[in-house]
């Protein structure tokens, strides 16, 4: 057995053990902590699967932001745990659920073992057309040139999710501040980290954003790091979330998708197809879209974690 295979098998066993723990453990808070560990282990698997772009996304969003969101929710819902535990289903339901779960997993496993060989791949096509886009990272080229429709719709879906979260606000808090006002010891470790980490985090985030054109990285990973830095400052009580009625906030939230749509439709005139780029201008247009999407993504991701408006706007 080679060393690489040993690493892969250990990673697999570890991920499955953590997944079992997330389902089985009684305390929801412990399950959420398990989920953060699960996200980081999956990021290692993505590296082993030669997908560093996905690994960065998984670590930043799957483990980091989702973890922060769920930790906050688990803390608020702690009181309800004892009551819902009484609703645990009986042996019959659990047995049927186990049979269903094993059947689905077995069907998928059969599918994995029966995958066609040689595998179909679009890698040669992506690499062949890479030069026309001017970017060096094929994943970025797919995201913003070959399949840019997906990325456009994704940016809109993320925004729609934020609108959904906001629209759950009670009437009295509409237009107000998302989430609770955080207070922390001004001399404590959290306030210290919230002053010390953001300068480093902002540089790392911007670097990962910029380098994404040619190497693993990109706007989603960079935006997540910037959003995390902002959330850290908010959680430490050094700043507050902006009221959702602010005009600058709403302008920045829609500017990314609007620029993307404008460049996309301009392509139907200049390049003969919607979301196509005129020859020679692909790289500058891709960079323009990424720069416009960046503030939108930072604000949307952070405000999705901050949650529903809860406090009155200032009179």
């Amino acid at each position: 057995m080679t060393l690489a295979l040993a690493v892969d098998i250990s990673l697999t066993l570890l991920v499955l053990a953590v997944a079992g723990w997330i389902i089985a453990v009684r305390d929801t808070f412990a399950a959420v902590i398990g989920f953060v560990a699960y996200g980081l282990l999956l990021a290692l698997i993505w590296v082993r699967l030669a997908a560093p772009d996905v690994a960065l996304t998984e670590a930043a969003i799957g483990g980091g932001l989702t973890g922060a969101l769920l930790i906050g929710a688990a803390g608020r819902l702690r009181k309800t745990e004892a009551a819902t535990r009484a609703e645990y289903p009986g042996v019959l339901i659990r047995t049927l659920a186990a049979i269903l779960a094993v059947t689905v997993a077995a069907a998928l496993a059969v599918g994995v073992l029966a995958l066609p060989d040689p595998a179909p791949t679009l890698a040669p096509a992506a690499v062949a057309s890479l030069a026309t886009t001017g970017v060096g990272n094929p994943v970025t080229a797919v995201l913003l040139a070959f399949r840019s429709m997906d990325t456009l719709l994704e940016a809109i879906v993320v925004l729609l999710a934020l609108l959904g979260v906001w629209s759950l606000a009670p009437d009295r808090a509409w237009g107000g501040y998302p989430g609770p006002r955080h207070h922390a010891d001004p001399d404590g470790i959290l306030a210290y980290l919230a002053r010390f980490l953001p300068p480093i985090g902002i540089i790392v985030g911007l670097y990962i954003f910029w380098i994404g054109a040619d190497l693993p990285g990109g706007k989603f990973q960079g935006a997540t790091i910037l959003a995390a830095m902002w959330l850290l400052v908010i959680e430490a009580g050094l700043a507050d979330t902006p009221p959702i009625s602010r005009t600058w906030l709403r302008v920045l939230l829609v500017i990314g998708p609007l620029v993307f749509i404008a460049i996309g439709f301009a392509g139907s005139i200049t390049a003969g197809a919607v979301l196509a780029y005129p020859e020679g201008y692909a790289k500058p247009l891709i960079v323009a879209i990424e720069i416009a999407l960046m503030p939108t993504l930072v604000l949307t991701l952070a405000l999705l974690v901050a949650g529903t408006p809860q406090r009155m706007p200032p009179q």
Partner: peptide, 13 residues
């Protein structure tokens, strides 16, 4: 390339 970039990009989405 280590993998097909098209599904990798869709995974990020």
């Amino acid at each position: 390339m280590g993998g097909d970039p098209v599904p990798q990009a869709l995974l990020i989405t």
